[in-house]
Design a protein around this nucleic acid. Structure first.
Length: 255
DNA sequence: AAAACTGCCAACCGCCGGACC
DNA sequence: TGGTCCGGCGGTTGGCAGTTT
């Protein structure tokens, strides 16, 4: 004897969400909070699977989402975390406030992966690709890359650590310095204070970025009534708090 | 101008671990 | 205790928009 079925497949709508559906979903969550996704479609009047509702909320409607392309710092962070964690997008996303695993996964597949390949780096292992696998132009890039990374000389570090995307893209980029700047950045306590995160810090400017979501402009009507705790921001900050335990997990798995 | 191509991303699918009955 | 469900995850796809030919 198990639970009741999640949702009957008959009559469940699929495909893109309409503004009206978004409105219903957000109204429901604003009223009842995030719990029991299975009940959400019934109670909110949506003809959607609960799973679909959860995805829509977490990937698109959540007010703390940053929208737009990942900036350079985020991209660099993703590359480094991927080198350590692999395709564990949710773990990676947990370290990028306002970004979803889906968003990061998409960005990886459409941008970063190609970039790394073009630079002669295997996006899976983060090690230099075989010269044979690299096109002549890419080979030149790779030679340039190796030249740069060898000049920065850190023989004990991993390839991924040796080659942040900024270093590869432009060795003269002053924003990224030597001495593993990425980890310094990650470990910096000021990372979450960086205004580029667009994360609500005080009540007066919270959710400003959310207004960029055209289909959800109406949500501004609600924002004044939403406390930071409502969306679990405090827990969220705890989640993104940089813990080494996940890295230890990864390492112990490898052993 | 239009067809073909490419890039992007929202959404779906299927699987898994843990919780529930 | 075993069957079933839920929530979460990663992989994949479909369709739209922009670009190229």
């Amino acid at each position: 004897m198990g639970r009741q079925p999640c949702c009957d497949k008959l009559g469940v709508k699929k495909g893109p969400w309409t503004a009206e559906e978004d409105r219903k979903l957000v109204n429901f969550i604003l009223t009842h909070g995030q719990c029991c996704w299975r009940a959400v479609p019934k109670l909110s009047g949506l003809r959607r699977c609960g799973k679909s509702c959860r995805l829509r909320w977490t990937n698109y409607l959540r007010p703390d989402l940053k929208r737009g392309l990942l900036n350079e710092a985020e991209e660099t962070l993703v590359i480094d975390l991927h080198a350590r964690l692999g395709n564990r997008w949710s773990k990676i996303a947990a370290r990028l406030p306002g970004r979803t695993d889906n968003e990061i996964k998409n960005h990886w597949n459409t941008h970063i992966k190609k970039k790394l390949i073009k630079m002669g780096i295997d996006p899976i292992t983060h090690e230099p690709l075989n010269v044979k696998q690299v096109s002549p132009q890419d080979h030149d890039d790779h030679q340039e890359l190796t030249k740069n990374s060898s000049s920065s000389n850190n023989s004990s570090s991993t390839p991924a650590e040796n080659c942040s995307i900024d270093e590869c893209k432009s060795s003269s980029d002053p924003k990224i310095s030597d001495d593993d700047p990425l980890m310094n950045y990650i470990l910096s306590e000021t990372i979450l204070d960086d205004p580029t995160w667009n994360f609500p810090v005080n009540k007066s400017d919270e959710y400003l970025e959310f207004g960029k979501c055209s289909s959800s402009d109406w949500l501004f009507d609600h924002k004044i009534d939403i406390g930071e705790d409502y969306f679990g921001f405090l827990d969220y900050f705890n989640d993104v708090d940089l813990k080494v335990s996940d890295f230890d997990d990864k390492q112990s798995q490898g052993n």
